[in-house]
Write a protein that binds this DNA or RNA. Sequence first.
DNA 1: CGAGAGACTTAGTAACTAGAGC
DNA 2: GCTCTAGTTACTAAGTCTCTCG
Length: 798
Amino acid sequence: MDDSDDDIPIASLTAKIAPAPIIKSEPKPPPAAAPAAAAKPKPIDGAIPKKVKKEVSNAEKYPGLTADEIAYKEKLKEIKRFAKIEKQQKKEKKKAKKEKEAKKRQREDSGGDFERKPKKEKKPRAIKVETGPKKAKATDKTQRLAQAMKAFLWWNAPTPPEGQQWSTMEHGGVAFPEEYVPHGVKMFYDGKEIDLTPEQEEAATFMAGMDKNGMHLGNPKTAKIFINNFFTDFKALLGRGHPVKDFAKCDFKRISDHLEEQKMVKKAITDGEKKMNKKIKDQINFKHGYAIVDGHIEKVGNFNMEPPGTFRGRGEHPKMGKIKQRVLPEQVFMNFSVENAPPICPVPGHAWGEIRHDPCVQWLGNWKENINGQDKYMQLAAMSSFKGKSDRSKYNKAARLCGNIEKIRKDYKKNLTAKDKALRQLATAMWVIDRLALRVGGEKDTDEEADTVGCCSLRVEHMTFNPNNDDDALEVELEFLGKDSMLFKQTIDFGSELYTTNNGMGEQVYKNFKNFCTGKKKSDDIFETLTPSILNDHLKNLMPGLSAKVFRTYNASVTLQDELAKKEKVENWDSLTVTQKVTNYNDANRIVAILCNHQRTVSKAQETALETIQAKLDTLIEQKKVLKKILKLFNKGGDLSLIPKKKSETEMKEAVTKALENAKKMKEEAKSNEEKIAATKADAEAKKLRKEAGDSKFSQAHLWENQPSESQVANKIQQWTQKIERMSMDLKNKDDNKEVSLGTSKINYMDPRATVAFCKRNEVPIDRVFSRTLRDKFNWAMSVTPEWQFCYEIGLED
DNA sequence: CGAGAGACTTAGTAACTAGAGC
DNA sequence: GCTCTAGTTACTAAGTCTCTCG
C-alpha cells in the first residue's frame, strides 16, 4: 500500500494548503479542449491527478501528448510492471516446485530407503537483546485508520455544546464520477443509423443498459411509465425537429451489445490490472472517505456523487425512467468548520456552489436532485459517533416507552369509545400503530410519487370486512402498498385471543373501523380527521419525545427479547450447539421481520437456484429407489448382473479440463478487446461444459463401476437417506425465508444490546450474528452485561 | 394552522466478496 | 486450489419528523 502522504487529504490538508475564503480550483481548460478530450482513449479507471512535479517530467518524456494521454501511458506502464512482477513470481514458484519434485524423485529412485542427510547441528538460539519496544505487526493504511477510529470511544468523550453536533470538522469533499467518454456506437431509428452528440449518446446508453427483465422494464405496467418518461427526456435532449419521434422505432441493440462486450472485457481483467484498480480505489477512499471531527477520525458514509442515469423509482412511481442529470460542483454545498481549510474541488475548472460552517447539522455536503427536487446529503458512516449517538438515543427512547406503555394503552383504550369521532379515530390509529406495527403514513401527492400508504393515509378500499364469509368472525383483510411499494396483506381477526386478552380491545377496534368505513367511497380516507402531526402531538403529551415510529422500535426490541427468553427457557437449551443457538436467534429475528413486514423480492436467479435444489432432491429420491431395488436383488438372490453400472466419466472430464485450460490460456494471452471478449466467451462455454459434466456425474453418483457388495449398497442407502433429509431441510428453510428480509430489523429496529447480552449469556461469538459493519455500527453496545434487559431504566441513561 | 423546507432514518436491490465445499 | 453461493456492502429511494414561515 502506498503510504506517501499525497493521498492523505485530511490531517495534512490544513498544513498543505493555505486557508482560502473563496474556493477556486485549477484554471478552466479552454472550452474547445473538452470535446477533444472526450474522444481520447479512456483511462482504465478514475484518473488520479498526478503531482505537478511529475507532470513536468512526463511532459518532457512524451512531447506532444496531453496530460490525459500521458496519465494513460503511465498507468499502462504500471499495469505492465505489475504483470511482469507477477509473472516472475509465478516462474520462481514453478522453479522451486520443479526442484522439490526432482529431489523427491531422486530420493525415490534410490529405493526409497535413502539415507537421510545428517541433520545440521542446531545453532544455540541467540539470546535476544531487548533493544526497545517491540515493533508493531505491519498493517496497511486502511487497517491503521480503522484502528484509529476504533480507539475513539465517543460514549466516554465530552459532548459538544448544547444544540451543536460538532466543534471542528474537516473532510475531503465529494468525489465526482468520470466525465462521459463517447463510445461512438450508433443507435438505429427506423432501420437507419442516427448520429448523436455525446450528451444524447449518454442518455441512449442509459436506456440500452437497462435490464429488459428487471423490475422496471420486466413489468408491462411500469415499463410503459418508464419508457414514456425516458423518451420525453430523451426527445428534449434531441431537440426540436429531430427525426426520432417514436420510441417503438428506436433500436438500442448495438449499444447494448457494446455494453455486453465491455462487461466481457472487464471480466477478462488480469490480476495485475485488478491490483492496479484496487490501488486507485484505495487512493480515492483515502482522499474522500475520512473526516476529522473534533480531532477524531471518522468514516464518511457516502462520498461518491451519484452518477447520472435513469431514475429508478420503486413500485409505480410516476417519474421512473426520467433522466437523472449529472451534478456539477457548483450545485454542491460543503459544510466544515471555519478554521479548517476547505475541501479541494476535484473537478478542474469548477468550484463548490456554497460553503457553510454550520455545526448544528451532521451533513458534510448537500445537493438537490433534479427528479423530485429533493435534498441529498453527504454524511458520516453508520459506525461514526454522529450516527452512534442518535442510534443509542433512539433505542433509549424506545426503552423509556416500556415504562409508559401501560399509560398509553390505557389512554387509547379509554378513547376508543369516546363520543368525539376525532378522538375515536386517534385512539384507533394508535391501536393500529401499537399492535400492528404500521408506519404513521404521511400524505402523498400521487402525481409526483408512488401511491403508497401508512396508518393515517389508509383508505376504505384497503379494508375488506369479512373476507372469509364467516359472519361470526371479526375478520378484516388489510391490503395495501406500504413504503417502497411493499405489499402488506394480512387478515386481522379482531376477535382472536391475540387482540382481545390483556385489554386488547379487538372487538371495539373492529366496531370503530366498521363505523369509520360506512357511508364512504372506496377512495375515501378511513381516518379523515387524523394527520401524522395530530397523532404525534398527542403522543408527545403522553411521553416527551414520543412519536409514531418509536412504537416500531419498541415492539421490535421487546419482541426479540421475549422470543429469545422463550427459547432460552427450553429444557435442553444449554446442550444446544452454537449453530443451533444461532438458528434460534434467527428464528426470533424472523418473527420481528414479519411483524415489521420487511420483505425482499425473490430474484430470477434465486428462483432458479431453488428449482435446481428441488430437481436434485427428486434425483436423489429416485436414486434411493434404485438402490433399494438393488438391495432386494441381494436379499432375494436375484441376477446381480442386472445391477446398472456407472458409465466412464474420464472422457468428459478430459474435455472439461481441456476447455478450461484453453480458456485460461486465452485469457492470459488476450491483448485486444476482441481477444478478451473471445476469452470470456470461451470461459463461459467451458464452465457450461463443466456443469453438464457435473450434472451427469450427479445423475449416476449412486452407482458403481464394478459390481458392489451387499454392504456397499446398504451403506449407500443410508448415505442417501441422510442426504435427502439434509437437502429437504435446506430447501424448506430457503423456501420459508426467501421473501423475509432479516437484515432491516437487525440494522434499524432491534436494540443491539439485547443481541449482545444474548450472545454473552450463551457463549455465542458475536460475529455469528453481527457482521463486521454491524459490530462497528453498534460498538457502543458491546460492553453490556449478560443480564442486560430492554427496560424503562436503561432508557434513562441519556 | 398548514405547507413545505430541511435533516435525518429506514428500506430494498444490485454489485461485490469471503469462505464453504468439492 | 478453484468455484459457487450466501452473506455483506454500496447505493440511493422513500419514509418520518421537526421547525419555520406566511
